[in-house]
């Protein structure tokens, strides 16, 4: 079981890299074929990672007898699940917009998230890389199936965290699109646009896509926060306690609320809203990773809380 889990994960990881390679090839060669292959490879990799996640749960259940086991509790699991959702989000966007070129702007972040998933032992000082062989050790220690802390053995864990992650992954996509928008905008504004602007979608299209992604992700984020509050009530006896994670989740929520507000009511379009998407993502990153070092209650990734 562990073997299937490890192998499918490896294949998925390689698949994301190969998918990105195809998208870059598509951007450079202008051959539709590359874009189609990038998509196929990503779908395959996503399938592999689903198998990997399922087998991981099954392994944890049989080996540790953990009935509430969900594969997004520690550093490694959380980042690789995040990468998985980024790619799923991208595939949805690509399907609805048929713009494979966007892969160049989004898929690298999935790759980064996957790389991030391995480095926890380095950060916590449990491992260091001196020899090449240490890399394998690092991987296996990062990928070990954790004992779920009692605080996380709850069905809320199975709904609250995925809701937050879906929203965060969508915001990552919006971030990638925002980058594409700003590059395209700057090129056209320069009056001497490089040739590649004809490869990128139009400003209006990108602007609308960013809006759509945030518009759809915002209710999911809202739901995630509400579920989290409900869980907090059951676990800690209060809905809201201004724990840093809670505070920052609220800040994230307010930023995207502000985005939707200025766009819908303020008539903002274009560059400023693209910056909003970038800024919002920076806050998401802080809420996701940075806050773990501040929050005792939510310090599951950093070890502060344990």
């Amino acid at each position: 079981m562990r073997l299937i889990e490890a192998w499918t994960f490896g294949v998925a990881f390689a698949g994301y890299a190969v998918g990105l390679f195809f998208y870059v090839g598509y951007a450079l060669s202008r051959r539709e074929m590359w874009g189609r292959w990038g998509r196929r490879v990503l779908i395959f990799a996503v399938g592999c990672q689903i198998v990997s996640l399922v087998t991981r749960v099954m392994a944890a259940r049989t080996v540790f007898g953990q009935n509430w086991y969900v594969p997004w509790s520690n550093w490694f699991e959380s980042f690789s699940f995040f990468a998985f959702l980024i790619v799923v989000g991208f595939l949805l966007i690509e399907t609805s917009s048929s713009l494979p070129i966007l892969g160049v702007f989004v898929v690298p972040f999935a790759g980064l998230a996957l790389l991030m998933s391995f480095i926890e032992p380095l950060l916590s000082g449990q491992a260091s890389i001196v020899r090449a062989a240490d890399l394998g050790l690092l991987l296996s220690s990062a990928r070990a199936i954790p004992q779920l802390p009692p605080a996380l053995q709850s069905y809320w864990m199975a709904v609250h965290v995925p809701a937050m992650f879906v929203a965060y992954a969508a915001f990552t996509n919006a971030f990638g699109l925002g980058l594409a928008y700003l590059i395209q905008e700057r090129q056209i504004k320069s009056r001497r646009p490089a040739e590649f602007i004809y490869r990128l979608p139009s400003l209006e299209e990108l602007d609308r896509l960013i809006y759509k992604v945030i518009f759809l992700a915002f209710p999911v984020l809202t739901l995630g926060i509400i579920l989290g509050a409900r869980w907090a009530y059951e676990a800690w006896g209060r809905y809201w306690g201004w724990d840093p994670k809670e505070t920052w989740a609220l800040i994230t929520w307010l930023i995207y609320l502000a985005y939707l507000h200025v766009r819908l009511a303020g008539g903002w379009r274009g560059r400023r809203t693209a910056y909003f998407a970038l800024f919002g993502f920076a806050v998401v990153l802080f809420t996701y990773v940075g806050v773990n070092y501040l929050s005792v209650l939510h310090g599951f990734l950093s070890g502060v809380g344990r």
């Binding site: 395209q184 056209i188 646009p193 004809y198 990128l200 979608p201 139009s202 400003l203 209006e204 299209e205």
Partner: peptide, 10 residues
Amino acid sequence: VSLAGKIFGD
């Protein structure tokens, strides 16, 4: 025309 297409799309 092609620049207009890259600003407005459709």
